[in-house]
Design a binder for these strands. Structure first.
Length: 914
RNA sequence: GGACAAUUAGCUCAGUUGGUUAGAGCAUCUCGUUUACACCGAGGGGGUCGUAGGUUCGAAUCCUACAUUGUCCACCA
């Protein structure tokens, strides 16, 4: 009757939404309803710019596997969901949409408030979509703690950290060369640049006829702002010029004073060995400028390009107002006319472009807010860089318990290398969608600030207010700029847990006061390697600095998903696989399983529909196995046995209540339970799933269930129930929906999601099991039939020779050998008089009497091949054992194994030849 | 230019401290609709583990060099 209710094919669409609703209603997604040791994972908040893609689907699968596994292990699990306002990305996207709708300059036309309104509308919409999609993935997160990087609680955290950094002198407003997107009218951090290769012209020239050295550049127009030429101090050709100042007239507003300076980084061999230094328009040159200043040999700084990509007054009357390219042409034609141009060559060059707006960035000197990564933190004698470094090496505060481990290890090196090269982090952005910098100025000062191009002597200290809340009095104006989105994302592990504990965030929810204490540092964080620097680094920075704690203990780095050709999935190339469509077609479980199969930590993997198909088949196989067990072996609840409990006593085992097959499957199941635990704890998701698949399909379905059709014993019902129940638990983290659905079919009232993770059954400790040997016999017969093309209906006469003391045993397996898909077999079991001292071989020979004459030659060929192979191995093994060095140096166990193998193979050979 | 990875069956990938006939899934070929499952079952074929050296009793695994592919960083002024 039960089987009538269960269709042959598992229909995912029928179950998924209902099951998710049931889980949600149960309250088990919320750790407040769980007890035990806390375990927390913060979901990397997806941007509110789009929809769920395969990368998200992978991440959700990984996180949910861990969350469910830990929950079943009796932990108080928090998987905290959230979304990211993704400052630049979102504003850029909405502006683009508005432009497409015909609004030419959204910022100007709409103004701050109206544009923000539009962006908010878009973001909220997108947020709702993506959250719905996360639910669709089956992710077991606590929706009551849903967070957003741009809500009030997170804003308060941002302001407080900003203020703390400011007070510690780690955030400063400085005039530095920064990356500027003309199109986006905003700064970008170094990490936000995407390097694009493109052809360029390299011009070699002299500033003036009598200038002693030539320099090369791809940006001639910036040379109107040169203030120095750098040479290597060991360069014999130029050494004598170091320190000299040359005044040249190149058409700029004022004659340029070019100082020859020394810089170790200039390569003597490269080009002319001399570098024109333009501090205003090159990050490296700006560093030289700062260095010169610090050693008391200052050089000038002349800004010749403005924020709109046009030449400034400083570039000279001829150039002012010209676009960069026009200025370049003009300058080149001037050089030609003056006969100063020496060489012109085509090269390819990498240009930093804005990640979000797509234009090549200009380097401009600007007054911006920076996080100083090298300055010592007051009272710490360590810089932020040091904190970031220590957290993954010696441990935060040199405490190994506060050390972050990165899986796979190699990313640790990449991370440390990045930290070494880190410059001060420019955190201010000139876009509107983001946390506004919590800094306030007096009116007249903001006027100066905005229109001063560069004035080192501006001192605004007394007129600046930095704080969580706006200052009193109405003559204060807030800084127009917003913060880099990573500033708020960096706080994610603790800003989501009620830090800072403002009255509002915790009102009426006393238990939440403890969230931070309970769940921080978080236990596990997973992310793609592409945001290692953006995010991992910044979370470590923020958490160690603000909380004096690491943000998480373990980081798991996953690779990127690529399509079957190895290309990145991208919207523009139209090769996108929509995870939701795939889930609709094959089921969410199949999608999840396929995403985590065949992946190794940190490595990219390819994803294609066939993979999902395979996973779907696995899911369906499990469905049918369950269907069969539930139908034919009454479910355990009816027999008043607790889920997963197997009542087998040592006595029963001794009394042979268990058959060879029973022992074999129970043994292998113990091995599986152990292996899955180890794999999950080492984040080997793919391997754990692989082993589950192997057991379920190849052990349970292909052998044990088949055996059960012929071997009827009292214990079968209990064993099968035990196996099914615990197997469902093991599978649950990977394929939560179908396992929960089957669980309900079993008749359990309690949900699978909070069942206890299977533990090892200590009564099952069986040695000397020979079921593998039975399998060997059966396979031999099948193999023979198939190879010799003998019809299953035709009777096959098989003789099995068995050593004396195993005769009764093999006799007892007669029915299995005859029945297990071996076709029609007439079995004759013969006693061999040999004594049995061969551990491995209980069956010494099988001879199959031939039914038809022509089969003889086929069989001879088949045997010949086998014999050949065996002889080869025997020869190799013999020569290995003849090698004295092998005997002397290899471990005893290895030598013994070789010896055993040799005896085994020799007897096997004898059998085949005989 | 620097760093990191990958290179194993037609394809996609495993291979956990070096241990001896190198595994899986898909594809392919042969056979089979026997009431859990054709989203199935049984069986077969297919790899000198990128190349060349080295270490070792023993190497897909460790070392060196090279090749190819990919990624990241730095950038040529």
């Amino acid at each position: 009757m039960l089987n009538k209710e269960l269709p042959k094919i598992y229909n995912s669409a029928e179950h998924e939404d209902a099951i998710y609703a049931k889980w949600e209603k149960s309250g088990f997604f919320n750790p407040d309803n769980l007890s035990g040791e806390p375990y927390s994972i913060m979901m990397p908040p997806p941007n509110v710019t789009g929809v769920l893609h395969l990368g998200h689907a992978l991440e959700n699968s990984l996180m949910d596997i861990m969350a469910r596994y830990q929950r079943m292990n009796g932990k108080k699990v928090l998987l905290l969901p959230g979304t990211d306002h993704a400052a630049v990305a979102t504003q850029a996207k909405v502006e683009k949409l508005l432009v497409e709708q015909g609004l030419t300059n959204p910022r100007q036309k709409l103004g701050r408030d109206k544009l923000l309104e539009k962006i908010r509308e878009y973001a909220e919409n997108s947020k709702a979509t993506i959250l719905k999609q996360i639910k669709k993935m089956g992710t077991s997160c606590d929706w009551s703690r849903l967070a957003y990087t741009f809500d009030e609680a997170r804003n308060s955290a941002v302001n407080i950290v900003f203020k703390k950094m400011y007070n510690d002198g780690l955030i400063y407003r400085g005039n530095r060369a920064v990356n500027w997107s003309v199109k986006g009218q905003s700064t970008c951090s170094d990490d936000e640049l995407v390097q694009v290769e493109r052809p360029a012209k390299l011009y070699t020239f002299k500033y003036a006829k009598d200038f002693p050295l030539a320099i090369a550049t791809t940006r001639p127009e910036t040379k109107l702002g040169d203030t120095a030429v750098a040479v290597n101090p060991r360069d014999k050709r130029y050494k004598k010029f170091i320190g000299q100042i040359f005044t040249v007239e190149v058409g700029a507003a004022k004659p340029l004073k070019i100082k020859i300076i020394a810089d170790e980084n200039v390569e003597v061999e490269f080009g002319t060995g001399a570098v024109g230094v333009t501090p205003a328009h090159s990050l490296i040159d700006f560093e030289m400028y700062e260095k010169q200043k610090s050693i008391g040999e200052p050089i000038g700084l002349i800004q010749v390009i403005d924020q709109h990509g046009q030449m400034t007054q400083a570039a000279g009357k001829e150039y002012a107002g010209l676009a960069v390219l026009a200025a370049r042409e003009k300058f080149i034609s001037w050089l030609k006319k003056q006969e100063l141009l020496i060489k012109e060559e085509e090269i390819t060059q990498n240009v930093g472009t804005s990640d979000r707006f797509g234009d090549a960035v200009e380097i401009l000197p600007m007054t911006q807010w920076f996080v100083d990564v090298n300055k010592k933190i007051p009272g710490k004698n360590k810089s932020l860089k040091d904190l970031m470094r220590e957290a993954v090496t010696a441990g935060h505060n040199n405490d190994l318990k506060q050390k972050i481990t990165i899986t796979p290890e190699r990313f640790e090196k990449i991370y440390l290398n990045w930290i070494d090269n880190l410059r001060d982090w420019c955190v201010s952005r000139q876009i509107w969608w983001g946390h506004r910098i919590p800094v306030y100025y007096r009116r007249q000062e903001i006027f100066n600030f905005q229109f001063s191009i560069f004035n080192e002597n501006t001192n605004l200290q007394q007129d600046i207010y930095v704080g969580e809340k706006p200052p009193e009095g109405d003559d204060w104006v807030q800084d127009e700029d917003t913060l880099d989105t990573w500033f708020s994302s960096g706080l994610w592990t603790f800003s989501t847990l009620g830090w800072p504990a403002s009255a509002k965030a915790t009102a009426g929810k006393p238990e939440k006061l403890n969230d931070l204490k309970t769940f921080h540092p978080t236990n596990w964080m997973q992310m793609g390697y592409e945001i290692l620097f953006f995010w991992l680094a910044r979370m470590i920075l923020m958490s160690t600095y603000a909380l004096d704690q690491i943000p998480f203990k373990d980081v798991y780095i996953h690779g990127m998903l690529r399509n079957e050709l190895g290309k990145k999935f991208s919207k523009s190339s139209g090769n996108n696989l929509d995870p939701l469509e795939v889930a609709a077609k094959y089921g969410t479980d199949a999608l999840r399983l396929s995403l985590i199969s065949g992946i190794a930590p940190g490595n990219d993997s390819r994803f294609y529909e066939e993979k999902v198909e395979g996973a779907r088949n696995m899911v369906n196989k499990l469905w049918n196995i369950s269907r069969y067990i539930i139908t034919n072996y009454p479910p355990v609840p009816k027999r008043h046995v607790r889920a997963g409990e197997l009542r087998i006593t040592n006595n029963e085992i001794k009394q042979k209540k268990l058959t060879q097959a029973d022992e074999w499957i129970l043994n292998n199941f113990q091995i599986l339970v152990k292996a899955v635990k180890i794999d999950l704890e080492n984040y080997n998701f793919s391997q754990a799933a692989g082993k589950l698949r192997e057991f379920t399909w190849n052990y349970l379905a292909d052998w044990y269930l088949e055996v059960c059709k012929f071997e009827k014993t009292d214990k079968k019902n209990e064993i099968l129930s035990y196996l099914l129940i615990d197997l469902l638990k093991l599978w649950h983290p990977f394929i939560p929906f179908i396992t929960e659905a089957i669980w309900a079919e079993c008749g359990f009232k309690k949900m699978l999601i909070i069942e206890n993770w299977p533990s090892l059954n200590k009564t099952i400790n069986i040695k000397n099991n020979y079921f593998e040997a039975i399998i060997g016999v059966i396979k031999d017969i099948r193999d023979y039939r198939a190879e010799n093309k003998i019809d299953l209906s035709k009777k096959l006469k098989v003789e099995i020779g068995v050593v004396k003391d195993k005769y009764n045993f093999i006799k007892s397996q007669e029915i299995l050998i005859k029945s297990l898909k071996t076709g029609s077999v007439e079995l004759e079991i013969k006693k061999s008089n040999k004594s049995n001292n061969e551990k491995f071989s209980i069956i010494t020979f099988i001879s199959i009497s031939l039914v038809e004459g022509e089969v003889g030659t086929r069989e001879k060929a088949r045997l010949g091949k086998k014999i050949n192979n065996l002889e080869k191995i025997i020869k190799a093994t013999e020569s290995r054992l003849a090698n004295q060095e092998f005997i002397d140096k290899a471990p005893e166990a290895v030598v013994k194994k070789e010896k055993d193998k040799l005896t085994l193979y020799k007897s096997e050979l004898k059998r085949l030849k005989g």
